[in-house]
Design a protein around this nucleic acid. Structure first.
Lengths: 250, 250
DNA sequence: ATCCATTTGTCCGTATGTATA
DNA sequence: TTATACATACGGACAAATGGA
C-alpha cells in the first residue's frame, strides 16, 4: 500500500535515472519472472552475470545483495547463488508467527474442512485485484499443534488461476506456498497481516473446541507475489491460550 | 571480551577472526556506548573514520551499512551520518503497529492513570534481568486516538535506573523512548512483542469504556537497549474494533 | 587425505556522481 | 561557486567454503 518500492515498477517508461545496481537488480528480477531459472536452481556465477550485464562484480554483487535481503535469492559461499524455494522451514520462519510459551515454532498439521468455488464478495475481489464477482476458491481448514486444534483458517484464491487445487482437496499439503510455487509459478515473497481480537463464532467454537464468544486472535493476511500483486487472502482465527503471536522488532 | 589469546585456544570450533568490517562495526558501537557521540550528533566523515580505524572507505562503509539497517545510525547524502534519535516519527514507525481501517498510523495521546514504585514479581524481575524482588516503577496509562480510548497500558521499568520518572508523573511525555534516550542514556533499538486475545477485565473495561469480557488484544512487549539487555516491559491491552495491529512481512 | 578449480566473501584504492550548505 | 559528505562504480587481489578429482 504505502510501499515506495512500487514506484520503481514501471517497466520501461521510467526515465531510468536509477543507479546501475538497481537496473541490474530489475533485469535479474525480470529474468526470474520469465522463468529463466526455476526455484532452487543455481544462477550463473557472479563473474558470469557481471560479464553478461557489462558491469563490475561489485555492482552485480550489490544488485544480488538486495535480492538476498528480499529472500528472493539465497547465496552460499563456495557453492553458488540459488533462486529461493518455499521450504517448510522458510515458510515457518517468515510467515508463521504462532509460538509456544518457550517461543518455539512448530509447523501445525492441517485438515481440510471444506473446499469450494464461489463468487467472491466485492470487497474480497477488490483486495485480490480481481473484477467484482470473480469466482474464488474458498478453502476452510483447521490446523492443530501437538494434536490440539489451534487455528480455524480460511484461504481465498482466484479460481481462474488456482481452481485446480479443488481436485486435491484431500491431499492438500501443509505448506500451501510451496505448492503455489511448484504448480502455479507463483512465489509469495511478502505479505501484510492485520490482527484483531474477536469473539469466537459458532464455526470457530466447533473447529477449535471452545465456547462461542471466547476471545480469539484473528489474523487477516494478504500475500503478494514477486510483482507485488495480491495472490491470496488468508484469515486465521487462533486460540491464544497455549500459543501466542510473536513479532520481533529490530 | 574477545581476547584473542583465549580465543585461539579453540582453533577449529571458534572462528576467532571476524571480518574486518564487523570488527569496525563493533568498535563504532563501543564508541557510541561510551557516549563519544550523543544521539543526534554527527559522526566524523567516512574518510576520517576510515583513517582512524586504518581501513578502506569501502570497509568502513560496510560497517556503517549494518548500523544503518539496525536503525542505530542515520545517513544523509551531502550532510553526514548521525546517531539515530527517538523522534516521535521513528517510534511511531518502528514500535507502534496499531493502524486505522485505512492502514494509517497516528500517535495516540496518553494520560497517566497511576504511577508507583513496587517490588517486582519474580517473573517480572527475571524478564528484566534483575534480582528477584527488585523494585520496579509501574506506570499505568490510557492512550486514546481521536479522543476515544484505545489502549490500556502498563509500563514496568527498573526503579534503580528509572525511579526518578515518578516525579514527572503529570508531565510524562507521549513518547517514552525519547525520554529514556535523553534522560537515561538508554536507547531502545529492538523489541519482542507477544500478542494474545483476552477478555477485558474490570480495569480494562473502566479504562476503555467497554464491557467486561469484551475480546481485546494484549501486546506484551519487552524492549532492549544497544547491548541487547532488557529495559522495559510494556503490556498494552487494546480495543481492536476501530484499529488493528498491522505487521508487514517482507 | 590432498590437491585443485569454482564460487562467494572480504578488502583495497581510486574515480566519479549527487545532494547539501 | 565552492567545499564537503555520502553514493555509486570499477577492477584487482586474496580469503574461505565447497565439492570433486
Amino acid at each position: 500500500m504505502l510501499d515506495p518500492s512500487t514506484a520503481s515498477q514501471f517497466p520501461s517508461t521510467r526515465p531510468t535515472r536509477n543507479p546501475l545496481y538497481i537496473q541490474v537488480k530489475q533485469r535479474i528480477l525480470d529474468a526470474i519472472r520469465a522463468r529463466r531459472w526455476k526455484p532452487g536452481e543455481m544462477l550463473p556465477s557472479e563473474h558470469q552475470l557481471a560479464e553478461e550485464f557489462s558491469v563490475s562484480q561489485g555492482t552485480l554483487r550489490k544488485a544480488i545483495d538486495e535480492l538476498v535481503t528480499q529472500n528472493i535469492i539465497i547465496r552460499q559461499q563456495g557453492k553458488g547463488s540459488f533462486i529461493a524455494t518455499h521450504t517448510a522451514d522458510h515458510s515457518l520462519f517468515y510467515f508463521f508467527h504462532l509460538v509456544d510459551a518457550q517461543n518455539r515454532r512448530e509447523l501445525p498439521h492441517s485438515a481440510v474442512r471444506r473446499i469450494r468455488i464461489r463468487r467472491g464478495l466485492s470487497a474480497e475481489c477488490a483486495r485480490l485485484g480481481l473484477k467484482a464477482g470473480s469466482s474464488l476458491l474458498d478453502i476452510k481448514r483447521v490446523r492443530d499443534i501437538g494434536g490440539a486444534p489451534v487455528i480455524n483458517e480460511t484461504v481465498l484464491l482466484s479460481a481462474a488461476t488456482f481452481g485446480s487445487l479443488k481436485d486435491m482437496s484431500e491431499s492438500l499439503p501443509n505448506t500451501l506456498y510451496k505448492l503455489y510455487q511448484e504448480k502455479y509459478d507463483t512465489t509469495v515473497t511478502s505479505a501484510a497481516e492485520s490482527l484483531r481480537a474477536v469473539g469466537a463464532d459458532e464455526d470457530d467454537a466447533d473447529a477449535l473446541s471452545i465456547e462461542v464468544g471466547t476471545p480469539i486472535l484473528e489474523i487477516d493476511r494478504i500475500a503478494f507475489n514477486l510483482d507485488r500483486q495480491p495472490i491470496e487472502i488468508r484469515i486465521s482465527r487462533c486460540r491464544t491460550d497455549r500459543y501466542h503471536y510473536l513479532n520481533m522488532l529490530e
